[in-house]
């Protein structure tokens, strides 16, 4: 019984990491209908950035969050400006393949310049585990989940309250109408791609506090994120947030109660049932 509660907590913690990764992905999809396969590799770049800042300048990953956000924002903008915006004019297949190409390039480029070795940050401000009457709560994982909630809320407020945020939502809902209303959609595309990347940069800094770092780490998170985006409804920020937690909990509890060998199968069955009942996903339209 104790283990069951423990697993529930663990599920929420990993679920919130998934949420943070998935909202960036879903934002990009929602605005420009581009599935960014390089999302996991952007995460990897974020993790490495935190790692190098820690090793070379002694910056704790917690403080590299803003640096990561800005750096990945710029990276996202450049990738959009010089690669994505070009293929947006081409056939749909080109859009699909190009981000896939970027992902392979980034992972292998990282392996080339930083070697494929594993790294981890040892003495961060966050380490250790709280023991709350038998319930184990990893401090770095807990702070990561708080960071995820805060970032998601921040994004949500930005989209609902600011002029630019409302413009992003407008483009997401109806691109043609937005153009007629005088919204510069090209700028909104670039901005959304950059914001989506910045979010994954934040996730990179948070994950760097307790996860191993290596060039192919993106792959461990990539596939599950697509599932979450689809489950939450393509383009829906709230949907992705809720779906992330849901997947985390179902995966962890399912693995514990049934068999860990089937934990991903359980997640995908849940996904299939959901799209069967609601083809647009939890919060899609």
């Amino acid at each position: 019984m104790d283990q069951l509660a423990q697993q529930l907590v663990n599920g929420v913690l990993i679920g919130l990491v998934y949420s943070l990764l998935a909202i960036g992905l879903t934002l990009i999809w929602g605005v420009m209908n581009v599935l960014n396969f390089a999302h996991g590799e952007f995460l990897m770049i974020g993790m490495f950035l935190s790692y190098w800042l820690y090793v070379m300048a002694g910056v704790d990953p917690l403080f590299s969050i803003p640096i990561n956000a800005v750096a990945l924002f710029l990276l996202g903008m450049l990738v959009y400006r010089f690669i994505i915006s070009k293929v947006m004019k081409g056939p749909a297949l080109a859009q699909l393949v190009v981000t896939f190409g970027i992902s392979i390039f980034l992972a292998n480029f990282a392996a080339l310049v930083w070697t494929p070795n594993f790294r981890s940050i040892e003495h961060t401000l966050l380490s250790g585990t709280w023991d709350i009457s038998g319930l184990k709560l990893s401090i770095p994982k807990f702070v990561t989940s708080i960071g995820s909630v805060a970032t998601s809320l921040g994004l949500f407020c930005f989209l609902k309250k600011t002029r630019i945020g409302k413009a992003i939502l407008a483009v997401e809902m109806d691109r043609e109408a937005a153009v007629i209303m005088g919204i510069n959609t090209e700028r909104i595309n670039s901005l959304s791609f950059a914001i989506g990347s910045a979010l994954v940069g934040v996730a990179g800094a948070l994950l760097a506090t307790h996860y191993y770092i290596y060039p192919f780490v993106g792959g461990s998170f990539g596939t599950i994120c697509f599932c979450i985006v689809a489950l939450g409804g393509f383009g829906s920020i709230e949907g992705a947030f809720v779906a992330g937690i849901l997947v985390g909990v179902v995966q962890t509890l399912g693995g514990y109660i049934f068999d860990p060998a089937y934990k991903l199968a359980i997640v995908f069955i849940m996904y299939l049932i959901t799209v069967w009942i609601r083809p647009q996903g939890l919060r899609g339209w």
């Binding site: 697993q7 962890t252 509890l253 399912g254 693995g255 514990y256 060998a261």
Partner: peptide, 20 residues
Amino acid sequence: DIAYPANASDVTSEVGKLIS
């Protein structure tokens, strides 16, 4: 006797089973 999918991003359920 626990089999699990390799390269998982989280293994807390596996370890939970071991503890039990």
